[in-house]
Simulated scan of single mutants.
Amino acid sequence: MFFSGIQNTINAELFSNMPIKDQNTSLQNLYDKGYSVPEISKKIGIQSGTIYKRIDAHRGRKGLFAG
């Protein structure tokens, strides 16, 4: 699809211009909200293995109102 290609490019560009700490926080937040690593990888445009290295996937996902 035309628009999904543009959106993926925009997402990747915006993400790549964020400081690394903010990138990692964003990745963790997406994962904690229930998005799978392959979904995040496809939309952000970075490899799944890189995402796994940059998030704490083993801690479990926090609930919406968890502290």
Results as ranks from 00 to 15, higher is better:
47 Q>M: 06
63 G>H: 10
45 G>K: 04
33 K>H: 12
17 N>G: 05
47 Q>L: 10
64 L>S: 12
65 F>A: 09
36 S>L: 06
19 P>D: 11
38 P>N: 01
48 S>M: 09
42 K>F: 10
30 L>K: 10
42 K>D: 09
62 K>I: 05
55 I>K: 05
18 M>E: 07
40 I>G: 13
48 S>L: 08
66 A>V: 00
28 Q>R: 05
46 I>Q: 10
58 H>A: 14
28 Q>A: 00
35 Y>V: 11
18 M>V: 01
45 G>Q: 03
43 K>N: 12
37 V>Q: 07
67 G>P: 09
53 K>T: 14
3 F>E: 09
31 Y>R: 06
45 G>P: 11
14 L>W: 00
30 L>R: 14
55 I>R: 02
41 S>E: 14
50 T>S: 14
33 K>G: 15
23 Q>L: 01
3 F>A: 03
39 E>M: 12
25 T>H: 06
54 R>Q: 14
3 F>W: 14
59 R>A: 15
36 S>C: 03
57 A>I: 02
7 Q>K: 15
36 S>R: 04
12 A>F: 00
1 M>W: 03
60 G>M: 08
23 Q>R: 08
26 S>H: 05
33 K>D: 13
4 S>H: 11
28 Q>S: 02
1 M>T: 05
43 K>L: 15
35 Y>T: 10
23 Q>N: 02
59 R>E: 10
23 Q>I: 00
41 S>F: 06
67 G>L: 14
16 S>W: 00
67 G>F: 14
22 D>L: 15
43 K>F: 14
42 K>L: 09
4 S>R: 11
60 G>Y: 15
33 K>F: 10
49 G>V: 03
55 I>M: 06
19 P>I: 09
6 I>D: 08
10 I>Q: 07
7 Q>C: 00
12 A>T: 02
43 K>S: 15
53 K>R: 15
67 G>Y: 13
11 N>D: 13
26 S>G: 12
34 G>T: 08
43 K>Q: 13
6 I>L: 08
33 K>I: 11
63 G>L: 07
42 K>G: 03
5 G>N: 12
51 I>D: 03
41 S>Q: 07
23 Q>W: 01
51 I>C: 05
34 G>V: 06
31 Y>N: 01
3 F>N: 04
60 G>Q: 10
9 T>L: 13
39 E>D: 12
61 R>W: 00
35 Y>C: 11
6 I>A: 04
47 Q>T: 05
14 L>A: 15
52 Y>M: 05
50 T>H: 06
64 L>R: 14
19 P>C: 02
31 Y>E: 04
43 K>E: 13
67 G>W: 09
20 I>G: 01
27 L>E: 01
52 Y>S: 02
25 T>G: 00
57 A>W: 10
47 Q>P: 03
17 N>H: 13
14 L>P: 00
62 K>M: 10
